[in-house]
């Protein structure tokens, strides 16, 4: 129950963990929240006053954040049971959902400490799908290929992926201990395959996505697109890569090495 003794105070229930190998535990904090407060400003308040609801002084809660305007992707956590960016989680809205704000680290990545997790798997996945345009170096070699506004619009929507991990946290097929590559990287493969020069590596990307843990491990639950904070059409990307892999597989069956 929220404490109503203090005006504009909300109860935070935080799932904490001191180190990767230690057991998690819960702590409650009562945090005053002026209008416009969000989860980050409340966590900052806890950092400055790390006292639990029952009056114990504890170590401040550790969490990841950087830009605080939902473009860096750092501050993902599970808030009131749902994965999202904590910077754009306004207390005024959360207070309508429940009496308390529950903060948990993402469950699909190893916990580093408290609300911080290790998402290096996501960045490694980007290497696996060769998420880059293979340019001939940085010297002045003229402009890039021209592009239709429609193609740019499609690519732009995909290019806003900030590797935050929401899509993977909500995905029932992406687990802490399996190999599924997940929506983010699949969508990036589509992004690069849609670029004139990026296409050169399309076969490599598709072959990577045809291995175990690749695109076919998607179970079409489509949670990814629901939780993506940037509204990236992830399920369209999965379908597009589905088509590309289908065509690629048939082509290589008939004309591959």
């Amino acid at each position: 129950m929220a404490t109503n003794t203090d005006q504009k105070t909300i109860r935070f229930k935080v799932k904490r963990q001191d180190a990767p190998q230690t057991a998690p535990y819960w702590q409650d904090f009562d945090v005053p929240h002026p209008p416009g407060a969000n989860v980050i400003s409340c966590l900052l308040h806890i950092a400055a006053n790390p006292v639990t609801a029952d009056g114990r002084t504890v170590a401040p809660v550790a969490w990841d954040c950087n830009c605080l305007e939902e473009v860096c992707g750092a501050c993902t956590m599970v808030i009131n049971g749902r994965v999202r960016q904590s910077c754009s989680a306004l207390i005024s809205e959360l207070a309508e959902e429940a009496a308390a704000v529950t903060l948990e680290p993402m469950t699909k990545f190893p916990v580093v400490r408290d609300l911080m997790v290790d998402r290096s798997r996501m960045f490694k996945n980007l290497i696996d799908i060769k998420a880059w345009v293979p340019i001939d170096g940085t010297h002045a070699l003229g402009p890039g290929p021209t592009e239709s506004p429609a193609n740019q619009d499609t690519r732009y929507a995909l290019s806003r992926c900030m590797t935050c991990g929401c899509c993977l946290e909500a995905c029932p097929q992406f687990l802490l201990d399996n190999h599924f590559i997940g929506a983010a990287a699949i969508s990036q493969a589509r992004y690069f395959n849609a670029h004139e020069t990026g296409k050169t590596l399309q076969d490599d990307r598709l072959e990577a996505l045809e291995t175990p843990g690749g695109v076919s491990d998607c179970g079409n639950a489509q949670n990814c697109v629901q939780v993506c904070p940037k509204d990236i059409p992830l399920t369209e990307s999965i379908a597009a890569i589905g088509r590309q892999t289908t065509v690629h597989a048939i082509k290589s069956f008939f004309s591959g090495k």
């Binding site: 940085t138 402009p143 592009e147 506004p149 740019q152």
Partner: peptide, 21 residues
């Protein structure tokens, strides 16, 4: 030259109807 290079790297610069930046 910087713009050209970033363009080659695949930055989705907004385009005109003809496909120019």
């Amino acid at each position: 030259k910087v713009i050209d290079l970033m363009d080659r790297m695949g930055v989705p610069f907004n385009r005109t109807s003809e496909g120019q930046r």
